[in-house]
Write a protein that binds this DNA or RNA. Structure first.
Length: 507
RNA sequence: UCCUCAGUAGCUCAGCUGGUUAGAGCAUCUGACUGUUAAUCAGAGGGUCGCUGGUUCAAGUCCAGCCUGAGGAGCCA
């Protein structure tokens, strides 16, 4: 069994003092060093090092570009031309898994600081060049989507999923550091009253048609969750600050580059907080995550930045982004988000050129929801930065959002509004949707009645308003949409390992 | 679900107003070379032109239906 270099014996200093024969065990069992460490730790130069990974390219029967996923960069392995048997050389093919031990030496050629002079090498897993689908060349994202099980072996997807990790980890970090508790809302839920979209039915029945739900496993109708928010509110009204972070399921027949049937959502919920606190939290989280990725994933971002620039070059000039990927991340991290009310947004849109030239496909008038084209104009043309829109008309928002009164943020004399807030990002659209929740029992019941939501189904939710209710607020952040923004990937299916979309659940 | 576009070698594509045996680059394989950077050079193999039906002397090319994918829209995160 491999030994992890956590205890005695495997430190860099030990490796150096032990000389070239040092290994954490016999060669076959030696724990390989991550290539990320091999390439960056200058103290390793001159040491004997074991690495393992997958062959990216093999040049001249002598040079292996080896990648182990720990970094986007490859380690060059150099074989001894005389001392390597032909049978072994023939097995070093694209994506073969190999393990090698040798001396890490400064590289005489340009292209890499160090390289590994191989003393010992084994092929752990062969890879047949004739049938391995991913070649050392540029592939289309569409093709790689069909090879989703192998696409992680490409630079692009390696970078994307390392960054996805950094974002996920950063979410826990940010909330933990700010006194939040990670709250696990259920995946299987019984309430279908949330109105967040079509749901996937969960059942053990062979056929649900004509069968009484009481005969089912849970003795009632159950579905996969579309949101952990209502449960998070229960947590927040006791623990103070909580967040959920888990998979979410929507059975909508959505076929777009920004919708998935299974996606990951982050839903913080804070007690004793109003809409402004909510906005501050949302903006703070976004900025923290961007800064973290800029710091922790500089190499991957540099690669994606170049990729993004190449993609932009393909577009007609009018559609090109005004900023590069990294440039825009820095800009968003360093500048305050624009905060406007829905009523102001309508006014800006009605004063806009596209409105006056009748370029908008959908009407702009108070009471109607903002369409994608309107959000795009606000974010990408008018403000050219993230925008938080508050105070939407009550009629187009969910029942749990707090009804605004005179003096409340976003209140309008044009009609009733609620304390909602949507964070709109360039290129992505709505990345966060949140609100201050209706904490007043009577108002909440009124809204539920108006929207035909039976109180019976949400008795537990209403209880929080009966017993020690407090102002509270929260939001939902779509993880994949955020990762899209950070990586510059145009299609949401390319930022989740195994995308689920209508008609597609391979892998 | 709606609108638009696309489907030709493993991949990316060319194939004109229908007309001999369907092409290129890359990849793969074989050989050469051996300090290379997606190495280079030479050669070889590789096709149900998405599927079904129709029009025609003749269909990769025209028509219809279906399937799959992409872009946009709606729903939303």
């Amino acid at each position: 069994m491999p030994r992890w270099p956590s205890g005695e014996g495997c430190s860099v200093a030990d490796a150096r003092s032990a000389g070239p024969s040092f290994l954490c065990g016999p060669f076959e069992h030696a724990m390989p060093k991550p290539i990320r460490e091999v390439l960056t730790n200058e103290a390793l130069t001159g040491a004997t090092v074991t690495v393992a990974g997958w062959v990216r390219t093999f040049r001249n029967d002598r040079f292996i570009a080896l990648n182990d996923g720990s970094t986007i960069h490859n380690l060059q392995l150099v074989l001894d031309p005389e001392g390597t048997p032909r049978e072994l050389v023939d097995r070093i093919t694209t994506s073969a898994a190999v393990k090698a031990t040798g001396e890490l030496v400064p590289s005489p050629a340009s292209g890499q600081r160090v390289e590994l002079q191989v003393k010992e090498l084994i092929v752990l897993g062969d890879s047949d060049g004739e049938t391995y689908p991913i070649q050392p060349k540029k592939h289309s994202l569409e093709f790689l989507r069909e090879q989703a099980h192998l696409r992680f072996r490409t630079n692009t997807f390696g970078a994307v999923f390392r960054i996805r990790h950094q974002v996920s980890f950063g979410i826990h970090e940010y909330f933990h550091d700010n006194g939040f508790f990670y709250f696990h809302s259920p995946i299987i839920t019984a309430s279908d009253a949330e109105g967040a979209g079509e749901m996937f039915r969960v059942t053990t029945l062979e056929d649900t048609k004509g069968t009484d739900p009481s005969e089912d496993f849970f003795e009632r109708v159950t579905n996969l969750t579309v949101s952990g928010q209502l449960e998070a509110e229960l947590g927040a009204t006791a623990l103070g600050r909580v967040y959920t972070f888990g998979p979410t399921f929507r059975a909508e027949n959505s076929n777009t580059a920004r919708h998935l049937a299974e996606f990951w959502m982050i839903e913080p919920e804070i007690a004793f907080a109003d809409l402004k606190d909510d906005m501050d939290l949302a903006e703070g989280l976004c900025k923290h995550l961007i800064r973290r990725v800029l710091e922790q994933s500089a190499d991957d971002l540099a690669f994606l930045d170049k990729r993004y620039a190449d993609e932009e070059k393909q577009k007609p000039e009018a559609q090109r982004s005004s900023m590069g990927l990294i440039e825009r991340l820095r800009f968003v991290a360093d500048n305050p988000f624009e905060r406007i009310t829905y009523t102001e947004a309508i006014r800006i849109l009605q004063d806009s050129k596209p409105y006056k030239k009748k370029k908008f496909q959908f009407p702009v008038e108070w009471g109607r929801d903002l369409q994608s084209e309107h959000e795009r104009y606000l974010v990408e043309k008018h403000f050219n930065k993230p925008v938080i829109v508050t105070g939407y008309p009550a009629a187009i928002k969910a029942f749990y959002m707090r009804m605004n009164g005179p003096g409340d943020l976003g209140h309008s004399d044009q009609g009733p509004t609620v304390a909602a807030m949507d964070v709109l990002f360039p290129g992505i659209g709505e990345i966060i949707g949140g609100s201050q929740r209706e904490e007043r029992l009577e108002q909440l019941k009124e809204r539920m009645a108006a929207m035909d939501i039976p109180e019976k189904e949400l008795w537990w939710y209403l209880d929080t308003r009966k017993f020690g209710t407090v102002p509270h607020a929260g939001f939902g952040l779509g993880l994949e949409r955020f990762v899209q923004f950070v990586t510059g990937m145009g299609n949401i299916r390319d930022v989740i390992p195994f995308p689920r979309t209508p008609g597609s659940a391979e892998f």
